[in-house]
């Protein structure tokens, strides 16, 4: 049944409207049964979230797309185990956290020159603003890369991605109390770095990347 509905979705022309037309439950069920079109729609619908989340969790790296593919490989492999107790995006987010966590553990064992992630997007008004933003972002990226996976994922998911604490706890597979503590510790670490680095403090306070 799901296949029939989903075949009406033109490939590559996914719009917000089609999001509303095809409920998650149908997409998930059809994807789990191997419907390629459903999978495509599911990926198109969630790719911006996964791409952004992985960027924030591991930084922009040469192998970023590989990590995104890993997330979906795990997703499709385990899709039949998704029971619908949580939102699908929360479940997918937990896979992102898991893939990022594995990645960082592997990096720990294989330190290399690209351990500090590339700079994130900078969209400054002037060269001076760009320079300040770059310096600030490098510190943030470095700080995130030095945090434990638990702290990093809690901070990224709650502060940057804007998920509430309960959702962050579900995605991270930790308790709500532990998530609160992780966010607090990450916040304190960033405040300590800002106190040490004037460029970072200026960048964060003045929002020099904003146009």
């Amino acid at each position: 049944m799901a296949r029939m509905v989903l075949h009406a979705v033109p490939t590559g022309t996914h719009t917000r409207g089609s999001d509303d037309d095809y409920p998650w439950s149908e997409l998930v069920r059809a994807s789990a049964s191997g419907d390629e079109r459903a999978r495509r729609v599911l990926v198109e619908r969630t790719l911006p979230m996964v791409h952004r989340m992985m960027s924030r969790l591991v930084g922009r790296r040469a192998d970023h797309d590989d990590l995104v593919q890993t997330v979906y490989a795990r997703c499709f492999r385990s899709l039949q185990t998704f029971r619908g107790d949580a939102k699908f995006t929360t479940w997918l987010g937990s896979i992102c956290v898991n893939v990022a966590s594995t990645y960082w553990q592997q990096r720990k064992n294989h330190a290399s020159t690209d351990d500090v992630p590339e700079l994130m997007l900078v969209d400054g008004k002037s060269p001076e603003a760009q320079i300040a933003a770059r310096a600030g972002l490098r510190i943030v990226a470095r700080l995130l890369s030095e945090m434990t996976p638990a702290l990093r994922s809690a901070f990224v998911l709650h502060v940057l991605e804007g998920h509430d604490i309960d959702t962050v706890a579900a995605m991270s597979g930790t308790s709500v109390g532990a998530t609160y503590k992780a966010v607090e510790r990450a916040r304190q670490q960033l405040e300590a770095q800002a106190a040490k680095h004037p460029d970072l403090a200026r960048f964060l306070s003045e929002g020099s990347v904003r146009s």
Binding site: H51, R52, S55, R56, R60, M120, L121, V122, D123, A133, L137, V140, V159, L160, G162, L190, A194, F203, L204, S205, E206, G207, S208, V209, R210
Partner: peptide, 12 residues
């Protein structure tokens, strides 16, 4: 302020 800056600057 910090959150807004970080969110805006880390969108790939």
């Amino acid at each position: 302020q910090w959150r807004t800056t970080l969110q805006a600057s880390s969108v790939p």
